[in-house]
Amino acid sequence: MSPSIQVAIVEDDAGLCRELERLINETEGFACQSTYPDAETALEGIARRPPDLVLMDIRLPGLSGIDCVRRLKDAQPALPIVMLTVYEDSETLFRSLMAGANGYLVKRTPRARLIEALREIVAGGAPMSRSIARKVVEFFHQVSQVPVPTGPAAGLEHLTPREQEILASLARGHSYKEIAVDLGISGDTVRKHMGRIYEKLHVHSRTQAILKYLGR
């Protein structure tokens, strides 16, 4: 059995933090390594003792969750970060995804679903709700109209047709499984495509296009 996945929780609400901590600890294969009440202590602590997964509240006092994600991703690009949010505000979630988050969870999700989502993320999955998918489609549509900057990331700006198909299906309401069946590819391939879509998003988070898009 693989060692427990060390989870770090960044949450300012003490009660909720306790609940989450209990949830993680009670779940098999997961363990709560540390909790931080705000982004500054989290940055410092995670730098000293890197966990395997970070659960981060979007709304934090001081430095916002999105900025914290960006900094963490700069320091440790491979660290998976999942955003926690009370409201499913697509805009904010999209931004956090662009900042580098691997996924998000809605706080009021039932326990079972929470754990399932965590496992998926740990397994390398990249869950995406259809609202987010819509946003991603829209974003790349915008990007395709912006002049392409040169550089090593040049090949990653645009979505491939397969990726576009997947996103459209997602937006319509299909699940990953259904998409795999429809397109005649494996579930893993779908997941890989999703991963690449995320990468492209993350890359773009540093380009002019994002800044322009964010500026809207």
Binding site: R130, R134, V137, E138, H141, Q142, A171, R172, G173
Partner: peptide, 10 residues
């Protein structure tokens, strides 16, 4: 219930 969307983007 399954929910299908046909909502235009962009």
């Amino acid at each position: 219930v399954r929910c299908w969307h046909e909502v235009p983007v962009g």
